[in-house]
Amino acid sequence: MNVHALLPMDRRSRTIAVILGCLALFACVFTGAWLYGDRGEVTALTLRKLPPSLQYPFGTDWLGRDMLARTLKGLRISLRVGLTAAGCSAGIALLLGLCAATLGRAVDAVITWLVDIAMATPHLVLLILISFACGGGEKGVIIAVAASHWPSLTRVIRAEVLALRSSEYIQLSRQLGKRPLYIARHHMLPHVLPQFMVGLLLLFPHAILHAAALTFLGFGMSPHTPAIGALLAESMRYLSMGLWWLAVAPGLTLVITVKAFDILGGNVRALLDPKTCRE
């Protein structure tokens, strides 16, 4: 990330700083949402449609609900959904990638074909299809995002393991009569773990964005849950009345969150890549 070339730090300390920043962001969102309690859901009709002020930094909506509290709750849902979905997706990718590269040509052909199929349909159409199949809801969003984000990471892991297969220590292990599953678990897994971590971290921002998009389109959480996508979809109706703050602040916090984790992923990748780690 070029933006950070301005800071007089090496990549290692910068990455640690970014990790700390992301953890702080996590902590802020979760404690903030917890401290606010139900303030984002109670209506106060005397405080309707207030523009951002010191007391209400994000303003209030058409029912007098505090937008800051609602945004924090929305972010909490986004982070939770994103983390679960990205975790599941990366898990699927790891499993399929390992299987494709170790369990013979037939399995490899099937998994490569599955990857091709999953990548052949536009992402968002696939997301809509899967969440429709699950009948919507938070579960639907998580399944849809998890089931549509594994292909690219599967490819990466498969390629990595294929390259590993011809290395000497694995050949040796095979000569010693170890089973493919043993080799996969004891020799290959530790080697692809860094790739897997980076893949997981880079999946995370994508998962958050796609979950928000799906909710925005109305396929996700019910309108009563203050998810970021739902908040923005609701605010659409009030934009023409000049309540711009309903859309700007929640969206901006979402962008900042996603970008923070994107930077984190990029830094960790550069650190783990032998080509760039000494920059």
Binding site: L209, V248, V255
Partner: peptide
């Protein structure tokens, strides 16, 4: 880099406003 982590629909909403 910022655009890569910005939701399309939000950009649309801001431009619309």
């Amino acid at each position: 880099y910022t655009m890569a982590s910005t939701p399309t629909f939000w950009v649309g909403m801001v431009l619309l406003t």
